[in-house]
Design a protein around this nucleic acid. Structure first.
Length: 154
DNA sequence: GCCAACGTTGGC
DNA sequence: GCCAACGTTGGC
């Protein structure tokens, strides 16, 4: 395993799975990812100890943004929701196409760092999440951006 | 709820 | 392998 920690932004619709739910659960399986690029990040790059900006998407304008931090706490494994015949995500064409990792709650920020703030902040406006049409649900981010956000919000 | 952007599917 | 049709994402 590479000693170099990776940094990510992971999206979730809060009505589906929120940072508050992650805090309650402590850890959760980050499963159900059905995009090849995101899958490749999970399968090939993510490692234990990586830090994730937890991002709420598809909420009200003032509720969209980075809401906290999570940490990758498992190596990648075959997404059980892609092989469970009772799952709404059942994938019949392959038994091993999709992957998941476990993530643990680290921190919920006292305030959200909104998408609007990211776009308006010259330090952060380069982030993929701020670019129009961006749909990638797991995206690499720079360590400096994570530190910047964490230091500019409590 | 609208719709632009994007990824995927499938006919050719 | 091209590309039109379709479904989904996600900001507004």
């Amino acid at each position: 395993m590479s000693p170099v920690k990776n940094y990510w932004l992971i999206k979730s619709e809060p009505h589906t799975y929120s940072i508050d739910q992650l805090r309650i659960d402590g850890t959760t399986s980050w499963s159900g990812v059905r995009n090849y690029q995101a899958r490749n990040f999970i399968r090939d790059v993510m490692q234990v100890g990586d830090i994730c900006l937890f991002y709420h998407s598809s909420a009200g304008t003032d509720s969209i943004g980075v809401v906290g931090l999570a940490e990758v706490v498992s190596t990648p494994y075959i997404d059980p929701t892609s092989i469970d015949p009772h799952s709404p995500y059942v994938e019949l064409r392959s038994q091993v196409k999709w992957y998941a990792v476990d993530i643990a709650f680290k921190k919920k920020f006292k305030q959200i760092y909104t998408l609007k703030q990211i776009k308006n902040d010259p330090h952060l406006s380069h982030m993929k999440v701020a670019q129009a049409g961006n749909r990638l649900s797991i995206q690499p981010v720079a360590k400096a951006d994570v530190e910047y956000i964490a230091s500019h919000i409590k």
